[in-house]
Amino acid sequence: MTRHAFISMETVFLKSFQYIRPESLEEAGRFLAGDAPVKLLGGGNTLLLRIQSGEEEPAILLDVKHLPGFKDVRYHHNQGLKLGAAVNLQHLVMGLEIRRHYALLHQTAQKLASPQVRNRATIGGTLAWASPVSELAAPMLCYDAVCHVWSSRGLREIPLSEFYLGDFQTALAGDEIITHVHLPAFPNRTYGVYRRQTVRHDGRRMIAAAAVLAYRRQQALTHWRIAVLGVDDRPKRIPEAEAALEGAPTEEEVDRALHIVQEQIHPVDADYARADYRRASLNVLLRQAILDVIQQLQSMRS
């Protein structure tokens, strides 16, 4: 049968599939080990579109939102934050523990898509989709997030900085499921900024975006984090540039950090923004973000 992506449907999917809500990871694992093509269903905001258009043709959709612990949120002042993979993005906007201790995550989530999308989209699903313009990835990278992954072969941890392999590819194997994401605890005097430039001001058609985070230890500004979006095949951190800012960066050091970033990104043309423009835009956004962080941290009472 030839496929006409063109006649994708109002309410009907081109091909049928089975919706299954597994009770346990083991049950989910059995489906993943089977022959039929399986996809994990989180919020469905992207996956269902890809099935409609014929880009994905799963035989089985495993709804992992109801697995035990998948909606848990736990915060401990030493151990940090544990976010179940099926926690929705709206929780990052509303959750008190997020607002208080992970303000950059809260700030970024507020700008993310729409309430409709945030209410459905899950943390696990959003990270696993691995879009180069995934706005969730920016604060998560800054907070040193680690994905905890289950498969029938066992458990493993993948730091988010090693999770993205580029071009919508992740380090996840086909039979692996993200169970939760862990963010370490951060000291009180941590400050982060997320800046983006998009053609439509709700966030659609991203030209570039950057998140910057650091904290203050006595007079030193330390633990710098820089995450960039829209300028490479994956959301990424730029550790060398972060290192250049360590301490209390001077103007020259900020310039040097920006220069390093420029050397380490590989933007591509989009129909609404050429690569050179995305590069220039990122430079401006990042400089503003770094200067904001410096100013905020330095104005905090020691």
Partner: peptide, 19 residues
């Protein structure tokens, strides 16, 4: 297509009926 699902607004075109 917005509806409230357990009190939260969602796009009902992207919710599967069995969900």
């Amino acid at each position: 297509c917005s509806v409230l699902l357990d009190g939260e607004v969602v796009n009902s075109c992207l919710v599967l009926a069995p969900e």
